[in-house]
Amino acid sequence: MTRYIKRHSLQARITHDVTIIACILLAISGLFVFITPLNNLLPSQVTFGIRMAHRVLGVVFIVVPLVSALLAPKGVKHMFSNYLAKWDKDDVTFMKRFLPYMLGPKRVHMPDQHEVKSGQRLADGLLLVAGATIAISGVFLLLGTTVVSFGAGLMLVMHLLHDLAFLMLAVFGLAHIFLGSGIFQPYRRMRRVMFGNGLISESDALYHWGHWAREELEKGDKVVEIKD
């Protein structure tokens, strides 16, 4: 028997997965606007079609998390309380050791962490900020080129914010994929937490989120035992 802890609800997983797929497709379609050789590769009608698809995907990227948040306000509150939690000594140590750990996981031991690691709070927090920025600026760009005139100055600011947020998403998104999908060896099996059944094994939970895992194992209400 192996003990598992339920880490993410079905709704959280669906929201995450749909948003992440929309985000990746948005990045790809956005590159056809952003990079001249790429959009010159295809006929302009195809690029135009990709731009329109970018807008539809943008709606998915914005609406799905918003609807999910409205359906589960307590979950949103819980998420933000985790992200805004006060940093303790372990959190600081985690951040200090992060780079050496990433370049030598066999040698560096990381301290126990709460439900959301300090590194997660920082990187995923910035990912959320970048996501919100790119969504808001995207709405301005969409409306400003279709139904409303916001003026050249504001539109340029929105272009810049959109591009800056894309840069942040590229950096933190790549890191998120590297860790979250388990490409990094110590993070193997992590993709099941969001793209699978939402369960994490006792061993992995203790390794990644020691404080949280012990609390949950003590409480027991999120613990399930599955026959090997």
């Binding site: 370049l103 996981p105 066999k106 890191a175 590297f178 990094f184």
Partner: peptide, 10 residues
């Protein structure tokens, strides 16, 4: 990340 992957092999 590539460097990190290489150091994590094994």
């Amino acid at each position: 990340l590539g460097l990190s992957f290489l150091t994590g092999i094994g």
